[in-house]
């Protein structure tokens, strides 16, 4: 039990440091990177919480969060590159 709590503490400190970068980051890409790392840390935190509270259902939530995190990173980057989410092809845009 104590090792789970120690891992949770380490993840909390890492989340704090990443949040500092999220608010301070000079460019957009710093912030996107920080959001992505924050999502990975949240996935770890959720699955650890499932073990601490003895409820394995949290693993499903963690898996869903990992999926959404990936999609949201790509969506943010696509939006700020083309200012629209509904374009079909990337290669045609560049031509």
């Amino acid at each position: 039990m104590y090792m789970f709590l120690a891992a949770v503490a380490a993840i909390f400190v890492a989340i704090l440091l990443v949040l500092i970068r999220l608010f301070a980051g000079p460019t957009l890409y710093d912030r996107v990177l920080a959001v992505n790392s924050f999502g990975t840390l949240t996935v770890l935190l959720l699955s650890l919480l499932g073990f601490v509270t003895g409820r394995p259902d949290f693993l499903d939530i963690a898996m869903l969060y990992a999926l959404i995190n990936f999609v949201s990173t790509i969506a943010i980057l696509k939006f700020f590159r083309y200012r629209a989410l509904g374009r079909a092809s990337i290669r045609q845009e560049e031509a």
């Binding site: 993840i11 704090l16 990443v18 920080a34």
Partner: peptide, 12 residues
């Protein structure tokens, strides 16, 4: 955990 902390420190 050590790698996570080092990575987060490197982000700063």
């Amino acid at each position: 955990g050590a790698f996570l902390l080092i990575g987060a420190f490197g982000m700063i």
